[in-house]
Design a protein around this nucleic acid. Structure first.
Lengths: 349, 349
DNA sequence: TCATTCTTCCAAACCGCTTTGAATCAGAAG
DNA sequence: CTTCTGATTCAAAGCGGTTTGGAAGAATGA
């Protein structure tokens, strides 16, 4: 059923029917009701492609999720982020277009989005340090919001980010306050912006108290269970092991916990652990009483915020950059405790 | 840059330019080359909305991801499935449209996809027992492929599925052969089709050897780490605990392993564990030498297959149902071993 | 040489909707 | 009884492509 057919069935012109359905004022209430009733009865729904060809608006948002070259890892937080964004889109009648694009083809992907006219705006995922995509998108001239930030030039584009630096600073300070002096950081890949900021927070907390942080206790890599396990095992096996660990994700934490157990130690007593919890729906941190002490910030909420911001930007037409910085909560769980009493192995009295 | 502008710049008609670019034969090689060069130079790309309005093909596939009511869980395997499907789409110039739709609004979502004309086909995720979506989609008359199956009437629609029954049958038989007689099944929600088939396989393996299976060792629920842990803890705490466990996912397995350790037992010696491994990119099963013995089937590959099948169906125009059943490999890991010698507690000799 | 057949290109219609500019009609004002 | 105004409605021109039905020119055959 097309508009034209509906119009004919009603004995009206397409113009009037279109206006009646789209809420324009120059239609009498009587005919509007008649048209709406008929549309309902016939199950008429406007063809989006025709409509957006006519209006110039695609009514769709593109998400380009990068597939890192080499390791073909799909970041598991996308699922929840997208769920959050999707909620917002469907409320506003927008569609969500996703393309998973290898690192090398990103530039082409954005230009295609623009020139093919298939989206009104773009969400940029997983920015790196000095990400070239941002200047690319600005030159392409399509509205976009970055989930996260590229490390420099924060002022000139729109973003939604979690305050990674502050979260890790607080977590680190909390451990320092508990007396820990050798704290390990198990981080994501440090070409990712979020990982850089987290490390900076980790270091800043030490600096603020005039305490040392140790390069050999800072590791970064793909955030898998295995990686968390292996690095923890290595570090706990040393002469001078850490008494606490800060980790960038829940999945890492699971491997870390395993390594702690395998070393015959108890988490929260022998080794403290704070993680960042993205509040993923399929990896809950134990519900009411959290297993891990964590800095928590819902990535699904971030998705909602980013989507809302992008739709606002598109609706307003203004390209004044906006930004939103979400603060993480520090959630107390069972994985942290005071630093164990210092046992000097080498010089017993 | 539009087709018309390009045509004018070349001194040709839009017709000829369109034909030159789309490979129609009624254009001389000389002009075709000229047109292609100019298109390249101007960076011309056809507007997809206009094109698909004219051709009637949307060049997009819709994925409707159900959001179960109540528990707002986003199934983590979607990320990998979609990555696989996305590969295929982008190779064929298709876009991927995703909408995350609450259970209750599924019907409306499909009808909208159809009537709005925004997709040429649909992938159906996470079918339930007797899923109504299938008959709905058939009546709507839009090509679709189901990832999985609805439990009955297998013949009349297209699907790609993993052989859940066979995989769990083999895994169970393997444990029975190792001498295990009390085997637990920690399954996904048993209103999901895949969970039903897995349970059937579990039971069939017992039946085939004339052995009993125990209802109190079969549990099902949301597949979280916590659920795996809690149910395992409960079962190991009983008078007559299982000596082996079969679990439906990697995430469950992580919780199960934790509970085994907490019970002071060793996985692979005191308690054997076989899991199903979807081969998720962010949850690898230990690489070269697998941690868990597992039935493995890549969900990303399933995504590729489903997408390929759907594009084929669309291209062929035939609505003859097709299907593809993927077999899981049985991967030997460190989590299984012979059943521990039967220690009779009550009647020592 | 002239009719015939390809080749190659083009004008115009169309896809389904929105939107501009104008037409129609009823009631108010003069 | 005109004229004007405001409220409704409509015809037609896009939006940017594809596709049908010729038309012009070149090549072929008699």
């Amino acid at each position: 059923m097309t508009l034209k057919e509906l119009a004919k069935a009603l004995g009206l012109s397409p113009t009037t029917v279109s206006r009646a359905l789209n809420g324009f004022p120059e239609v009498s209430d009587a005919t509007r009701r008649k048209v709406q009733a008929a549309a309902e009865a016939y199950g008429y729904r406007p063809n989006m492609r025709a409509r957006s060809l006519a209006t110039g608006r695609a009514m769709a948002i593109g998400h380009v999720i990068p597939l890192a070259s080499g390791h073909e890892m799909v970041n598991p937080v996308f699922a929840d982020f997208i769920a959050g964004a999707g909620e917002v889109y469907s409320k506003s009648g927008y569609d969500m277009l996703i393309s998973i694009v290898p690192e090398a083809e990103q530039a082409r992907a954005y230009e295609e989005f623009k020139s093919k006219g298939s989206v009104d705006g773009i969400i940029v995922h997983a920015p790196r340090e000095g990400d070239r995509r941002i200047s690319l998108l600005k030159s392409v001239g399509i509205p976009f919001v970055v989930h996260g930030r590229a490390s420099e030039s924060d002022e000139s584009y729109s973003w939604v980010d979690m305050n990674n630096l502050r979260a890790f600073q607080r977590a680190t300070a909390f451990l320092l306050d508990l007396g820990h002096r050798r704290i390990a950081l198990i981080n994501g890949l440090e070409n990712m912006d979020f990982a850089i900021r987290r490390r900076a927070g980790f270091e800043a907390a030490h600096d603020a108290q005039g305490l040392r942080h140790f390069d050999d206790l800072k590791v970064s890599g793909e955030m898998t269970e295995q990686f968390g396990h292996d690095r923890t095992r290595d570090m706990l096996g040393r002469d001078d092991p850490p008494t606490a660990i800060i980790a960038s994700s829940m999945i890492l934490a699971i491997g870390i916990r395993r390594a702690i157990r395998e070393a015959g130690l108890e988490m929260g007593r022998d080794v403290s652990l704070i993680i960042h919890d993205d509040d993923l729906s399929y990896l809950p941190n134990g519900g009411d009483d959290p297993i891990f002490t964590a800095t928590r910030s819902s990535v699904r909420e971030a998705g909602r915020r980013a989507a809302t911001m992008l739709l606002d930007i598109i609706a307003s037409g203004s390209d004044a950059p906006r930004s939103e910085l979400l603060e993480a909560e520090l959630i107390l769980g069972q994985s942290t405790g005071p630093a164990p009493a210092q046992v000097s192995i080498t010089e017993p009295t």
